[in-house]
Lab assay of single mutants.
Amino acid sequence: LRLEVKLGQGCFGEVWMGTWNGTTRVAIKTLKPGTMSPEAFLQEAQVMKKLRHEKLVQLYAVVSEEPIYIVTEYMSKGSLLDFLKGETGKYLRLPQLVDMAAQIASGMAYVERMNYVHRDLRAANILVGENLVCKVADFGLARLIEDNEYTARQGAKFPIKWTAPEAALYGRFTIKSDVWSFGILLTELTTKGRVPYPGMVNREVLDQVERGYRMPCPPECPESLHDLMCQCWRKEPEERPTFEYLQAFL
Rank of each mutant, 00 (worst) to 15 (best):
Q231V: 13
V128G: 04
A27G: 04
G171K: 04
W180P: 02
Q58L: 12
Q208E: 12
V15N: 01
M75A: 15
A124L: 03
R25E: 09
L84K: 02
V57K: 13
C11H: 13
G8S: 03
R214M: 09
E44M: 00
L127A: 04
F173Y: 07
M75G: 05
K85L: 10
L186P: 01
E236P: 11
W233Q: 09
R93W: 10
G78Y: 04
K85A: 08
G22K: 14
E244P: 15
G140H: 02
V26F: 09
K77I: 12
G8P: 00
M200S: 07
P165L: 09
D99V: 15
V117F: 03
P198Y: 13
P218F: 06
P222C: 09
V136F: 00
F173M: 02
I104E: 00
T23M: 13
V201A: 13
E188T: 02
C11M: 04
N125P: 01
T151L: 14
Q247S: 10
F139M: 04
C230V: 09
L84Q: 06
E65V: 13
C232D: 05
C11I: 02
E210S: 11
F41L: 03
Y110P: 01
E39D: 08
K55G: 09
I184R: 00
R240Q: 00
K55Q: 12
P218A: 08
D82N: 08
F243S: 10
L186F: 08
C230A: 10
A152E: 03
F41H: 00
P33T: 11
L42E: 04
V128K: 05
L31E: 11
T242W: 15
V26K: 05
R240M: 00
V57A: 11
D82P: 04
P219M: 12
W233L: 05
M200E: 08
E149P: 05
G18P: 02
T242S: 12
A123I: 07
P222W: 06
W16R: 15
E238D: 13
V117R: 00
V63E: 03
A137P: 01
Q58E: 13
Y110N: 05
I68K: 05
G140N: 02
Q58A: 09
P237T: 12
M108F: 03
A61M: 06
W20H: 15
V57Q: 10
L51V: 05
E146G: 05
S79A: 06
K85S: 07
V195D: 08
N21D: 15
S64K: 04
A102W: 11
V71C: 10
R143Y: 02
E220N: 09
P241Y: 04
M17E: 10
H226V: 07
R211F: 11
Y150M: 01
L84F: 08
V15R: 02
R25S: 11
R194H: 08
N125C: 00
T163Q: 01
E87M: 14
P159L: 00
Y150E: 03
D227R: 14
M229E: 12
Q58K: 13
E210K: 09
V47N: 04
Q9G: 05
C232P: 02
A61S: 08
A137T: 03
E238R: 13
G155K: 03
G212S: 07
A142I: 00
E54N: 11
K49Y: 04
V26Q: 04
M17C: 11
K50V: 13
D99A: 15
P33W: 14
V128Y: 05
E44V: 00
A168L: 05
G155Q: 04
Q247D: 08
K32A: 02
